[in-house]
Design a protein around this nucleic acid. Sequence first.
DNA 1: AAAGATTGAGAGATCAATCTTG
DNA 2: CAAGATTGATCTCTCAATCTTT
Lengths: 144, 144
Amino acid sequence: MAADDERRAAWRELFETHAALRERLAAEMQDETGLPMTWYDVLLHLADPPATSMRMHELADAVVISKSGLTRLVDRMEEEGLLAREAVPGDRRSTAITLTPAGRSRFEEAREVHRRGIHEHFSRHLSEEEARALRELLARLARV
Amino acid sequence: MAADDERRAAWRELFETHAALRERLAAEMQDETGLPMTWYDVLLHLADPPATSMRMHELADAVVISKSGLTRLVDRMEEEGLLAREAVPGDRRSTAITLTPAGRSRFEEAREVHRRGIHEHFSRHLSEEEARALRELLARLARV
DNA sequence: AAAGATTGAGAGATCAATCTTG
DNA sequence: CAAGATTGATCTCTCAATCTTT
């Protein structure tokens, strides 16, 4: 496993680069839109077709948070007027979450900030070939 | 910026693969040694030369946590007998943190678990060339 | 009983304020 | 006053327990 040195260094680098980038993007998001990254993530999942609305447990899976964590997160975002809880016709146990118009417009603004950040801190330093190679390599790792 | 699509997908992949790997490694660490990843990170910084001991604020920077967060983290780890606070000869404002013998042996056990995890979930799926290319690419991104 | 969502209790993090030493 | 560390208040997350509907 001494031969793993190069690979272990690659893992370290993956870890640190990810952390640094994530932090920059989160800080920009917070500064320029007032949204924490978690909120952006929720908006993202609700804004993109095919999902015009999602149940609580689906949304919890999608944004990778516990169900109780999501309950509170949705409480706060509903309070801010970005989301709405709606009854689900067929099943009275369940709640569907949708974007309010305010939520959608807030998301669209935030998406621009996010895209700009990714371009600035990531994309523009990468050739298209490099991006493709990176993506394929990482996808392979994720599937394992 | 439509040409950024491939690159943006690469960023998504970087984000998700990192999250998945991190989660697996953290779960194994917790299960097999009882240590949260944060604790491992503290031990790691104190175990590797040249640092035989570090001040609180240095350690806070190294593990990327707030100073007050570190105060409490060190409280807990000291309570478990893994760390010791020591006076700094020249400066009575400051505290030096060192590994106890128990802390060192706990770290050595944890390092094995960590190495095995990285090998299993990361290294063994990568050729040495791929690792080198990945590392260089990421290092370049981090430096920007 | 199981599925969906919420609530209560507790862990761990942050920011701002404070205490001590330089 | 500044630097180093800690404390108090608060935020957000998780796990376990609970309530309602299927």
